[in-house]
Structures are given as C-alpha cells and as structure tokens.
C-alpha cells in the first residue's frame, strides 16, 4: 500500500483514489467515473503511463518498457513471495550481479522498475548488516543512490551505507 501511495504522490495523483479491498487483500484504484483497477502492477503501470512525468520513467522504447515490466514481475514473483532465507539470498545475489555494470535497472535514468524495487527491497535491506551490505556492494550502491532522491524515498527511513571498504578479503 505504501509503495503505491508514494508512487501516486511522486507522479502527482490524488492518493485518496487508492484503497485496500479488505476481503480480498488487494489494492484498488477508483476513478471518479467508477472505473476501478486492481492489483499493484496494473495500478503502477496505469499511473506511470498516465502521468506527465518524463518518459524515461515508463521506458522510452518498446524494449525498455518490456524490461521494466519484467522487473515488476520479478518483484511480484521473486521478492514479494520470498519467505525463506534461501529464496532471499538467491535474488539478492541475482540483483547484485545484475547491477554490477548498471546504475539503474533499465536504461540510464530512474524508472518505475527502480521505484518499485526500492520499495520492495526496503525492509530487507534495512535488516542487512554492514558486512552484508559490503558483500552486495552493487545492490547497496544502487539502493543508496535511489534513496537519496527525496521524492522517491518520501517517508521511508534513510538506511545508512558505508562508502569506505570496512572488511578486507571479502568477495564483492
């Protein structure tokens, strides 16, 4: 709920249109004319594609838009559904390697993928030790960069990162 609220704020949409269907535990976006949208991904796409925000946020080319969709799915399938430590470890490693040669997930600027992954990973990264943050250096570097965009972070807590290498001999 928090991530879509922030996204609506980020893209200048009234947060009041967002609600939670208590029975089905699903997010609902209600327009004035009564039309409704259900679910994180569909609402996120709807909002970003309807906003006047710079076009890199939703992807400039068909390829970029597809890549963003892929990461939204990744969040749903791999991050939101990870309950065991071994699932978590697997996708953290995955993402860390992916980000080695990239500043942002898709293209060369912040996109919807970065936005929703930041929210999806926040609690997990908050609980990492400094040793783990250094071990997953590329993930940490990306996260620290994204959280320093005030309009993305909004009310989320700022997570501390070390820019100096604290532990020697560790693989990163």
């Amino acid at each position: 709920m928090n991530d879509l609220k922030s996204l609506a704020t980020y893209l200048n949409f009234p947060v009041a249109k967002l609600s939670l269907d208590q029975k089905e535990k699903i997010l609902v976006w209600k327009e004035k004319d009564g039309k409704t949208l259900r679910g994180l991904i569909s609402i996120a796409k709807y909002l970003s594609r309807n906003s006047s925000h710079h076009k890199q946020f939703t992807g400039e080319s068909i390829e970029e838009r597809a890549a963003i969709d892929q990461w939204l799915e990744y969040r749903l399938n791999n991050i939101d559904r990870a309950h065991q430590e071994k699932d978590t470890n697997a996708f953290i490693k995955d993402i860390n390697t992916y980000l080695e040669d990239k500043v942002y997930f898709v293209g060369h600027q912040l996109s919807l993928a970065d936005f929703l992954l930041y929210y999806g990973l926040h609690n997990l990264i908050r609980d990492l030790t400094f040793y783990e943050k250094q071990k997953y250096m590329h993930l940490s570097r990306w996260f620290d960069n994204v959280q320093h965009a005030e309009n993305v972070r909004q009310t989320q807590t700022l997570i501390p990162f070390q820019k100096n290498i604290l532990y020697t001999g560790s693989a990163h």
Binding site: W142, D144, F161
Partner: peptide, 8 residues
C-alpha cells in the same frame, strides 16, 4: 565501486 557518481 561504492559510489554511483563522484560526489554525492
């Protein structure tokens, strides 16, 4: 390695 840009 630990930074996205050179300063900040």
């Amino acid at each position: 390695l630990t930074r996205t840009y050179l300063v900040g």
